[in-house]
């Protein structure tokens, strides 16, 4: 609605959400619950109750806590798949994957650690467990497991709760409330801003949307937005954001559907294909992230964003 009105008054084209046709064969993310899996075929039930039968490519790999052959994935777990050829051939599968991003509220436990996170004003609180075998790996990149500091890790959703297995980034060294200010802008207007794009599972399953830090506080009714260590331009809820994955050279338009108030506090770099510019500029829904060629386990890709 806002897009059409803005296009009408400024006399510009109304952008359309979805991948850029120049990408070539589009990647399509399919998610659902595994009903049956064999080395060559997988049967999933999607959120709207449809059953989908997909071919597993011979080179396909899967992740469920560790890398494994697709046929070993447990039946009944939630899976998100990267597919080729109009959604018929599966290339990569992630089962039960989840990501915990937020500010640490408390850390308890001696061997296994229980971390309580504040995931931002729109996402509430969340409790995650770091099993003893993962603490070493996590602490290397999260040395400050203390209240007030940021936390970002990838884990497995299980019946007993969320188990954290991998760090998703190197923890920023400042407290969550003390985000560095952006470098001074020198008047010149850049239509594209570089930084890292991440994913979050706080979106709906089939949603292709983005959370963007620089939306006005009055627009999202939240005092935590408009914070970023990158000089980002202001956009609104409903604006179309064109996201370019520099690593895979894929581009897509996604609407801004949420406030990126947590993403804006991370001033980290992504080292997916090259050392990127610092600062998280956009947080994508898992489906949008996968369709841009992102690898959920790595947690980020180097991106350029602009108004779509």
């Amino acid at each position: 609605m806002r897009r059409e009105l803005a296009a009408a008054v400024l006399g510009r084209e109304v952008g359309t959400p979805g991948p850029d046709p120049a990408n070539g064969d589009p990647l399509i993310a399919v998610s659902g619950e595994i009903r049956d899996v064999s080395p060559h075929l997988i049967l999933v039930e999607t959120i709207d109750g449809r059953e989908e039968r997909l071919v597993i490519a011979p080179w396909a790999t899967a992740w469920h806590g560790v890398d494994m052959p697709p046929a070993d994935l447990p039946v009944g777990s939630q899976v998100i798949m990267k597919t080729l050829h109009e959604g018929r051939v599966v290339e990569r599968l992630w089962a039960g994957i989840t990501r915990a991003t937020g500010t640490i509220l408390s850390v308890t436990g001696r061997r296994d650690l229980v971390v309580e996170l504040d995931c931002g004003p729109h996402r509430g609180r969340r409790q995650v467990t770091i099993p003893y075998r993962a603490t070493g790996r996590l602490r290397v990149r999260h040395p400050l497991l203390e209240p007030g500091f940021l936390f970002d890790a990838i884990g497995l959703r299980e019946e007993s709760g969320t188990t954290i297995l991998l760090p998703a980034t190197s923890q920023p060294g400042y407290p969550a409330r003390a985000v560095p200010s952006p470098p001074p802008a020198f008047g010149g207007v850049q239509s594209r801003v570089s930084g890292s794009a991440v994913w979050s599972d706080a979106f709906d399953e089939e949603e292709r949307g983005a959370a963007y830090p620089m939306v006005e506080r009055s627009d999202v009714r939240c005092s935590h937005s408009e914070v970023s260590c990158v000089g980002l331009p202001y956009l609104a809820m409903g604006s179309l954001l064109s996201v370019h994955n520099v690593c895979t050279d894929r581009m897509t338009n996604v609407p801004i559907t949420a406030c990126g108030c947590v993403a804006g506090r991370f001033c980290d770099r992504c080292v997916e294909c090259d050392t990127g510019s610092r600062g998280r500029i956009v947080e994508l829904s898992p489906a949008a992230f996968v369709e841009l060629g992102g690898e959920l386990i790595n947690g980020c890709f180097n991106a350029r964003v602009g108004l779509g």
Binding site: R2, L5, A6, A8, V9, L10, P233, L235, M237, L307
Partner: peptide
């Protein structure tokens, strides 16, 4: 009302129930 880059938009309704939008 919303803001995109350097423009702020205000949307109103007129008596014919059409949208009148200012930038």
């Amino acid at each position: 009302s919303w803001r995109e880059l350097c423009w702020r938009f205000f949307a109103f309704e007129n008596h014919d129930k059409d949208h009148v939008v200012f930038a």
